[in-house]
Measured scan of single mutants.
Amino acid sequence: EVYKVKIKIERVLPNGEKVEEEITIEVEGMSEEELLALARELAAEPGVRIKEIEIEKLPP
């Protein structure tokens, strides 16, 4: 199964400015739980906050 994972994050820059970013990846052969863990890892940097995680199962 192939999933499209869209992660919206908010990053706080050293000057205090907040910037929103969106990361989209396609992943194959992982469960939804593994995808959530991967998304959290991607956003685990200091000053980064996850705003939204969207997981979509793509048709075969």
Rank of each mutant, 00 (worst) to 15 (best):
E20K: 02
K8L: 11
P46D: 06
G16Y: 03
E10C: 03
E54N: 15
N15H: 08
E56D: 07
E33K: 06
V19L: 11
K57G: 08
E45A: 06
V5N: 00
E20Q: 13
V19C: 05
L38T: 06
E56M: 13
R49V: 14
E41H: 08
I7A: 01
V19A: 06
V19D: 04
G29Y: 11
K51E: 05
E28H: 08
L13W: 08
N15P: 01
E54D: 07
K6R: 15
K18I: 15
V48G: 02
P14M: 15
I50K: 00
A43L: 07
K51C: 11
R49D: 15
E26L: 09
G29Q: 11
V19Q: 11
E26N: 05
E32C: 10
E20Y: 10
I23M: 13
G29K: 11
A37L: 10
P14C: 06
E28G: 11
L36V: 09
E54F: 13
G47K: 01
S31D: 13
E34R: 08
G16P: 00
E52G: 07
K8S: 07
L13M: 09
E56I: 12
V27N: 03
E34A: 14
A37I: 11
L38I: 15
V27L: 10
G29H: 10
I9W: 15
K18F: 15
E33L: 11
G16T: 01
V48Q: 02
E45W: 10
E22N: 13
A44S: 15
E41P: 02
E10P: 00
E41R: 14
R11E: 00
E32R: 08
R49A: 12
E34H: 05
K4C: 03
E1H: 13
G29D: 09
R40F: 11
E34S: 06
G29F: 05
V12R: 07
K57Y: 13
V19P: 01
I23P: 00
V2N: 11
I9P: 00
E17W: 05
K51M: 11
M30H: 07
L35H: 03
A37V: 13
E34M: 13
E1T: 13
T24A: 11
V2G: 06
E41S: 12
P59S: 14
I55K: 01
R11Y: 03
P14S: 11
K18L: 12
E26W: 09
Y3R: 03
E32A: 08
R11D: 00
E21S: 07
G16N: 03
I23F: 12
I25S: 03
